[in-house]
Design a binder for these strands. Sequence first.
DNA 1: TGAATAGTGTCTTTCAGACATTATCTC
DNA 2: GAGATAATGTCTGAAAGACACTATTCA
Lengths: 253, 253
Amino acid sequence: MPDPEETFLAEYDPAAFPPVAVTVDVVALTMREGVPVALLIRRGVPPFQGAWALPGGFVHADEDLATAALRELGEETRLPSDVHIEQLGGYGSPTRDPRMRVVSIAYLLLAADLPDPRPGTDAAEAAWVPLRELGFGTGGPTPRPLAFDHAAILADGVERARSKLEYTALATAFLPAEFTMAGLREVYEALWNVPLHAANFHRKVLSVPGFVVDTGRLTAQGGGRGGRRARLYRAGDATSLHPALLRPAGEES
Amino acid sequence: MPDPEETFLAEYDPAAFPPVAVTVDVVALTMREGVPVALLIRRGVPPFQGAWALPGGFVHADEDLATAALRELGEETRLPSDVHIEQLGGYGSPTRDPRMRVVSIAYLLLAADLPDPRPGTDAAEAAWVPLRELGFGTGGPTPRPLAFDHAAILADGVERARSKLEYTALATAFLPAEFTMAGLREVYEALWNVPLHAANFHRKVLSVPGFVVDTGRLTAQGGGRGGRRARLYRAGDATSLHPALLRPAGEES
DNA sequence: TGAATAGTGTCTTTCAGACATTATCTC
DNA sequence: GAGATAATGTCTGAAAGACACTATTCA
């Protein structure tokens, strides 16, 4: 139970408390060549110099948290106009940053066709890294350690995305404006790391009102090794899926 | 694109950025007399003096965020040992606090049988307020305005609880260690604000492995107006429900 | 033509919702 | 015994998973 006077002062003089910094970190995911990848930067400055980390940085004055997340990511790669962004949560362990008390608000960002990153101001390097190489998915090399608590944040972001595929239309955020049923299925299969039954997936997606809309057009070419031309769909109005597309029970990485 | 030197300094001298305060706010929910209620305090100091608000306060040095949330709530009411607490997210609009930049990490806390609150150090009053009086559920009076952005935080907390009833065993967090099937159903009905079919609910709950465990004992007395004695259950090992208990489509408040 | 891909039809099992029935208990 | 509550059984329709089959297209 704090002293009442201390609490009173705290309300009016927050400088009486130890300084706290607020940052944003971004878990940015996209699909590249059918593989889910996350954007990582290699730190050019201490602490954790040389280690891989999530893009992020300090929140500016009078800047909204989500705006800060978009700004920080925009410094690493060119963002298209239609990205999906949502908050993952706050990370504030007293020991997560060796310099001082830093509370970070993490964001999950999904988009299609993000270009190769450009190293930011304080990043030695920036790259899209397949999730498989980060310990998600089956097999893959031993995941590289990440700076700060970014491994936990990344894991939370991936799990959020995997989970929201089930009951929201989030998968379309990974795809361009027009996509095929096979492309949509690849998103689910790559993120969930399970093979899905193509025929049942097709029927199920079409049975959810507002999930996808048939454009009436077809792909210009059939599959690379032969095959019928696929119908093109675009995202529908629905944000939540009824009924949901549940992950096969018991599986996953 | 910020000046590289500025960014460099920012990494080492966060005091160069405007001061930011970090607080926690708690959406505490429990059932009292079959009615879902939230804990609110009436502010004794400006800003928003006299307005109702969520319990919360500044995070102390070297204190974990969740620990701060439990400490702040413990100043208002006596907490039992087995509470459920989870993070709702960060709220950091630049204008949410008129005094200065304040980023708040909100927590959702659920427990059974929380006692009457005691006013905290800077609270003029503290009370359990039925959700119906706060704009959740059907009818009810016009909800009282809350301080800061606490109305939005409360709404997020209630929606989180409602949503997690579907696919997790969260409902048992509202109940004492041993409970009846009717008690469990009341939690769902009260939070979702829909009547549920008692017979189907009964069968469905028992069909979910690990949701509830039969103690083999019965209530001491039958229902107040007659009726068979009910079997007593306790929470099982399961945290997620397979299959899920979905909300009736289209309904809710 | 053959292999590969896209899409449709059908059957079985599981589960949710509606309703009927049985088992107790209080008054 | 009457009414109320708890628990179980049965039927129907929706949806998931498995599988067979048709429709195209490329090499």
